[in-house]
Design a protein around this nucleic acid. Structure first.
Lengths: 197, 197
DNA sequence: ACAGTACGGTACTGTACCGTACTGTTTCGT
DNA sequence: ACGAAACAGTACGGTACAGTACCGTACTGT
């Protein structure tokens, strides 16, 4: 018996972990198009048969492998919108500079443009990445620190937009000066005095 | 004789035009991954052999097919930075809403992340798309309308960033209100009074 | 010990693709 | 009219991939 749906067979855990790890590896290196089940099987030592036993299709495997992307770091709560935002932007910039998924996201965006199955994944990732901005924005609004006519969506666009642009389009380095300027500009948009560190 | 390198055979022109047109068609529909020589040949009625006579490889064909993307509309010259910028942003937003290439760019960005051959293409496209912003920015600086410490690269990031973010990441509509806000915010960054239409 | 389950290995079907070779036909320039 | 160039059609070889079927083996909990 499979232990009444509670405990999972250790072999299954090993196999799934190995497969997911190698999938993520290939994903980082070659984007979505760089992942093939054959190659995952070769590298992980888990046979193709077993992979298909655990995931119904390649897409399902990809979705699960992406599920750890952008796992939210703790949302700062300094009491000031400026400092919260600065911390979040620093964090995002650091992720864009170094995180594995920064090289993967473009292929997800591309895939989302045509395959609905992956559009969902894109939506979830976007929501997870931007959630912290929503939190600090709403807190600031609750404190009356921020005008009510500028919602979380605006903050996301104004702050993440330039960062993303720089990372993927202009491909200039995301240096400290640029990041600081983005924060300052955003704060001046929203009529908040900058008092970040 | 092939007409001393000057005039090109009409058959060659026809073939190349048909191939490029269908390549662009497939590109719009399925991104870079959606273009196969077989399919281009089928749809264009140009045989595969002929395609390989004119382009040495699939990549070469793709590069040439992309060469028309983002062909710059005339750069506005109203005499005011605010109005110039507003016109450019409106234009860019309209392109992002409707132009065929707006669906293709993510796959180019993705490809540029790994294939150097296409990274060049990406660089050229980026330069072409952003050139108008550089022009109006430099004109404004020359008039003393704009502080010298904010270069064209900053203007591009602040203005195009939110638009791109909205088009490809948050996937919210690029409505007029949003576009206007982006322009206003950008102008306030740079210490310019908004006097656009 | 024993049943249930997970597993690896291999082979297979079917598809899609790149790039080339070969054969004959149309079209251009002169 | 005639040679050269461009062409279509077709058939390849080679590779890679998704997904499935089958068999025999190793492990797990009871």
């Amino acid at each position: 018996m499979a232990r009444s749906g509670d405990v999972v067979d250790a072999r299954v855990q090993r196999s799934k972990a190995a497969v997911l790890a190698q999938t993520y590896e290939l994903l980082s290196a070659g984007g979505i198009g760089g992942v093939s089940i054959d190659e995952v099987s070769r590298r992980s030592g888990v046979s193709k048969t077993t992979i298909y036993r655990h995931w119904p299709s390649r897409a399902a495997l990809l979705v699960e492998a992406c599920s750890t992307i952008g796992s939210a770091p703790p949302v700062p709560d300094t009491g000031s919108f400026g400092a919260d935002l600065a911390a979040l932007v620093e964090e995002l910039a650091e992720q864009l500079r170094s995180a594995r998924w920064a090289a993967v996201l473009p292929s997800i965006v591309d895939a989302a443009e045509r395959e609905p199955e992956l559009a969902e994944l894109h939506a979830r990732l976007h929501a997870r990445l931007m959630a912290p901005f929503g939190v600090v924005t709403e807190r600031a609004q609750a404190r009356g620190e921020l005008a009510a006519d500028r919602g979380p969506a605006d903050v996301g666009a104004v702050v993440a937009g330039p960062l993303f642009y720089r990372r993927w389009f202009s491909r200039e380095p995301l240096d400290v000066a640029f990041v600081r300027r983005v924060v300052e500009d955003a704060l001046s948009h929203f009529g908040v005095q900058d008092r970040s560190t």
